[in-house]
Amino acid sequence: MIPKPVAYSILDLALVSENHSLKQTFNNALKLAQHAEDYGYKRYWLAEHHNAENIASTATSVLIGYVAEGTKSIKVGSGGIMLPNHSPLIIAEQFGTLGTLYPNRIDLGLGRAPGTDKETAEAIRTDFMQAAQSFPKEVEKIQTYFSIENEDAQVRATVAEGVEVPIYILGSSTDSAHLAAKKGLPYAFASHFATTHLWDAMAIYRKEFQPSEALEKPYVMAGVNIIIAETDEEADRLATSLIRMIVGIFTGRRAKVQPPTDMTEDLRDIMRNPQVHQMLKYSFIGSKSKVKAQVKEFLEQTKADELIAVTHLYDINDRIRSYKLFAEIMDELN
């Protein structure tokens, strides 16, 4: 058994598969969230990325609204909004509106990275680097805009004041761990791709955590790649789409998600590449029994409070099936 019950959630990029339209992609995101709600997932988060033809979660707050409208109880939010791309005032207004429309269901996860390449980041905001360096102050501005005490200020986000929208700090390095701890906010670490700093970041966050109005004790969410099928062989076959996605990231050729193929020795060699192997360190691929053992070990080691699962597959039905099996695993472990 694991040390304590652990919540489980989904991080989605609204991936665009080959021969799928954007409308299909958005419909599939909603379909997945509806199934996740039925399977007992705590939250469904969308990540902000730009200038990638295989990712459709660019207008993140708009898509959050679409998913929240089509679901009933699951929390929906950002994993995350890349704050240096935006004005804190505008984000407070957008999420204050969402929080009013869907009470106690909207999360605001905030990250510091651009979620894109250097040229696109500059096209989004010419002072991006300056905004990134001011990330702690920008987070503070959002907290102020959500505060009832801001009603006498000259600059207000009136639709956000007093609205319940929890803030989460996202991170892939140790910088964000210090910030989340200092502010007493929950911390979500991107260990589904940024594996190197996971242990240091968790240790810093837990050691330096200062209780706040938002949170009494540390709360760690850890990202994991999950691909589960009926057999190990079928899971390996489905994972070939993920491997080709990773190759696209390293080569700068980000194509739409490709259909799975048989696993070949060449693809296995790619998985053994030191960079790829490190990036996919916390990827649990296989049958239900195999993945259950891996997840149990990961939870025993990290003592994470919540797992946020990322499943990059070509076909929506394979994704839904994998998430169903993962929910079964978490229910059994809990």
Rank of each mutant, 00 (worst) to 15 (best):
M1S: 13
M1K: 09
P5D: 09
A7R: 15
A7K: 15
L11A: 13
A14D: 03
H20V: 08
K23G: 01
K23A: 15
T25E: 03
N27F: 11
N27A: 15
A33S: 01
E37K: 12
E37N: 09
R43A: 13
W45E: 11
L46A: 11
E48N: 01
A52H: 12
E53T: 06
I55M: 15
A56C: 05
T58V: 12
I64F: 00
I64S: 02
A68L: 02
K75L: 10
S78K: 04
S78Y: 00
G79F: 06
G80P: 03
M82T: 06
L83N: 02
P88T: 04
Q94A: 04
Q94T: 05
F95N: 05
G96K: 03
T97V: 12
G99T: 13
Y102T: 08
P103R: 08
P103E: 07
N104V: 00
G109Y: 05
P114I: 12
D117P: 00
E119Y: 02
A123R: 07
I124N: 09
F128V: 07
M129S: 11
A131G: 01
S134M: 12
K137D: 15
E138C: 00
E140V: 02
A153T: 00
A153Y: 12
V155A: 11
R156F: 05
T158M: 13
E161I: 09
P166S: 07
I167C: 09
L170N: 01
D175C: 05
L179Q: 07
A181E: 03
K183M: 14
P186R: 06
A190G: 10
S191H: 03
T195K: 09
D200E: 15
M202K: 14
E213H: 12
V220K: 09
M221F: 07
N225H: 05
T231F: 08
D232N: 14
E233T: 13
E234D: 13
S241Q: 07
G248L: 10
I249R: 00
F250E: 10
R253H: 14
R254Q: 13
V257P: 09
T261G: 07
T264N: 03
T264I: 01
E265A: 12
I270C: 00
I270T: 11
L280S: 01
Y282N: 10
F284M: 13
G286I: 08
K288G: 05
K288E: 15
K288M: 10
V291Q: 02
V295D: 07
F298D: 04
Q301T: 12
A304K: 01
E306N: 00
L307R: 00
L313T: 15
Y314S: 04
D315T: 09
D315E: 14
S322A: 02
F326H: 09
I329M: 11
M330F: 07
L333M: 08
N334Y: 05
